[in-house]
């Protein structure tokens, strides 16, 4: 059996005295799409952010591609990684945010080539060619020189996806990518994500889009109050939830 892309073992996270994650254990296989659903404050976004070490965990172990996240284990002791190594590992994990977080002082093209140029020293011509390809793939070949303020929310989010893909990540994290969008524009972004899933990208998606979860996900996880309440095949969980808490949540959102 091959190593899973993401493996969490009893992950705990505290903010001060508030326990946000209370022992999360899960596995995401290569090429798998996992959707995480749950009420706000359930810790699903926080868990996503621990995977690329934007939040450090307080207990448990978290592995990406078989390598411990954020630490190095040496003779039974954990050593913090220096900033440079954390950055190198983050470069292999793409992340897409609810509020897009595009760099407003750069055009779409500049947004996409920024990290390859700065982090990987890709030659400018090559970076531009690859970025143009990516922006064409997300349907924005005519918006290369537009600034984020000139784009709709859906277009901005697609630029953000292209920006993350430009680093050729082995894993993509989506933090409620369609929650800040007008209902009309959600479809374009979901189409791009479906395309990625078809191409075999490993993805973890925190979302409220049950339709997307049902058709695109291989696994569905329902989180509440920092624990995984229920997990399994998305069609199964959505149609026939076992836990009272899951039933109550789904009856409100479906």
């Amino acid at each position: 059996m091959t190593e899973p892309m993401v493996k969490a073992e009893g992950v705990h996270k505290r903010f001060g005295r508030l326990e946000v994650l209370c022992g999360i254990s899960l596995e995401v296989g290569r090429g798998e799409v996992m959707c995480i659903i749950g009420p706000s404050g359930s810790g699903k976004s926080t868990f996503l952010r621990t995977i690329n070490h934007l939040e450090r965990i307080n207990r448990g172990r978290l592995y990406v591609d078989g390598v411990l996240v954020g630490y190095r284990e040496h003779r039974g002791k954990l050593h913090e990684l220096p900033d440079g190594e954390v950055a190198t590992r983050r470069a292999e994990i793409g992340m897409v945010f609810q509020r897009f977080n595009l760099f407003p002082h750069m055009t779409s093209l500049e947004n996409v080539i920024e990290a390859p140029r700065q982090v990987r020293n890709v030659p400018k011509a090559q970076a531009i060619a690859e970025a143009t390809d990516l922006l064409t793939r997300v349907g924005l070949s005519d918006k290369l020189d537009s600034y984020p303020s000139q784009l709709s929310g859906g277009q901005q989010q697609r630029v953000a996806i292209a920006r993350a893909l430009a680093m050729k990540p082995k894993l993509m994290l989506f933090d409620e990518p369609t929650s800040a969008l007008d209902p009309e524009l959600v479809g374009d972004v979901l189409d791009v994500m479906r395309g990625l899933a078809r191409d075999g990208m490993t993805m973890i998606v925190v979302t409220h889009e049950m339709g997307f979860a049902r058709e695109a996900a291989d696994k569905l996880v329902f989180m509440d109050a920092g624990v995984i309440v229920e997990a399994g095949d998305p069609r199964e969980v959505l149609a026939n939830p076992q836990h009272e808490r899951t039933k109550a949540f789904l009856s409100k959102v479906l």
């Binding site: 292999e92 977080n101 760099f103 700065q118």
Partner: peptide, 24 residues
């Protein structure tokens, strides 16, 4: 969010400050 986006792309703190934060 700007700092987070830059860090998540693998940029170092110094690159983030110089390329993303200070220009804005």
């Amino acid at each position: 969010g700007q700092t987070e986006a830059a860090l998540s792309l693998g940029m170092t703190r110094l690159q983030t400050m110089r390329r993303i934060v200070l220009p804005q």
